[in-house]
């Protein structure tokens, strides 16, 4: 198999997922090659990092590629694909990769599977991915090659160095981008920095209503911690944006992460899985959060939390 891995970087840093793509490519390439593609204005330093893990690194450089746009990524990747004929194109399942990968697939008339967690190439291309926010899984066969896969972060961390060459692809955009990059906007800084907290009481949609946040606040106060939340809690305006844990919020590693009424979707888990101790309370015995927690209880949070508060008050009072 000839496997292309499209690299990603931002703010001067290569995304570690780009190396994970190469780890996967090296696992499945057989007697083929794992080839990275890096696109931008001046990508030499990324190419060098990638070359450690790739048989070949294609550099696609042009002034107009300074800032990512899906239009030009698809344009240059289609040109390179049509010339080099890879069997498989791996892209990170990120805000950037998840955006241009389906576009690229459609332009190449290639099958696509997104957010893939396992790949088997022993008989055509087969992949595994989750459905239903992590509650169901499917094995899929992609009917033709080339095909495009976006790969979930954190699954293919293991790999060894290969040491390949860096090649200028000699490809230029064939047009101007219709979409223009304007600027990056930094996250707002709030009063509480949840990344610094030792103890986090985190609430999900299971908290049901803004008025119940108080309950979590009371528990957090007694534990000397802070309250954070999953995305729906922030989307609903029940907690400020800087309290969001997850891939589009903050990554936290507290001593204790108490997850109340959080299902444990991947995008949330990526923000808290490295906590020292994770305890989850959820009504649903099948909730994926129990897959990352050390301790779990299948219970109604509105029954357990008041009990916890009571007992903590007794301890404090004594």
């Amino acid at each position: 198999m000839k496997v292309f891995c499209v690299a990603e970087y931002r703010f001067d840093e290569l995304n570690p997922l780009s190396i994970e793509l190469l780890n996967l490519a090296n696992q499945i390439k057989g007697d083929g090659t794992a080839e990275a593609v890096v696109i931008g204005k001046d990508v030499g330093k990324y190419a060098e990092e990638l070359a450690k893990y790739a048989d070949k690194v294609w550099k696609v450089e042009d002034d107009s590629l300074e800032n990512y746009t899906p239009d030009l990524h698809v344009d240059v990747l289609s040109q390179l694909t049509e010339r080099e004929n890879p069997d498989l194109i791996l892209v990170g399942n990120t805000a950037q990769g998840g955006e241009f990968a389906p576009y690229l697939a459609a332009k190449l008339n290639a099958p696509i599977a997104t957010d893939v967690v396992a790949v088997d190439v022993s008989d055509g291309v087969k992949v595994s991915r989750y459905l239903m926010q992590g509650k169901l899984m499917v094995d899929l066969k992609l009917k033709s090659t080339p095909c495009v896969l976006t790969i979930r972060q954190g699954v293919f961390k293991e790999g060894s160095e290969v040491g390949g060459e860096i090649v200028d692809a000699g490809i230029k955009p064939s047009k101007e981008s219709k979409r223009k990059f304007v600027s990056y906007i930094e996250p707002e800084v709030g009063e509480v920095d949840i990344t610094q907290a030792d103890i986090i009481v985190s609430v999900g949609r299971g908290i049901e209503d803004e008025s119940n946040i108080e309950l979590a606040e009371e528990l957090a106060d007694l534990l000397g911690g802070v309250v954070a939340g999953s995305r729906p809690v922030i989307d609903n305006g029940w907690l400020p944006k800087d309290r969001q844990v997850g891939i589009s919020g903050k990554v936290v590693k507290p001593k204790l992460y108490l997850a109340l009424g959080i299902s444990g979707a991947f995008q949330h888990v990526m923000g808290m899985k490295d906590s020292e101790l994770i305890i989850a309370i959820n009504k649903d015995p099948e909730a994926p959060i129990f897959g990352v927690a050390q301790y779990g209880a299948v219970a109604d949070l509105f029954d357990v939390v008041p009990e916890l508060i009571e007992k903590l008050k007794e301890i404090k009072g004594a």
Binding site: P111, I112, A113, K126, Y130, L131, G134, K135, L136, M137, V138, D139, L140, K141, L142, K143, S144, I278, A280, E286, P288, F290, G291, V292, A293, Q294, Y295, G296
Partner: peptide, 15 residues
Amino acid sequence: TLEIEKMYLPPVKKA
């Protein structure tokens, strides 16, 4: 473009 081979409940390592 795709063929479903199998659907199943994911194995979860349990707390």
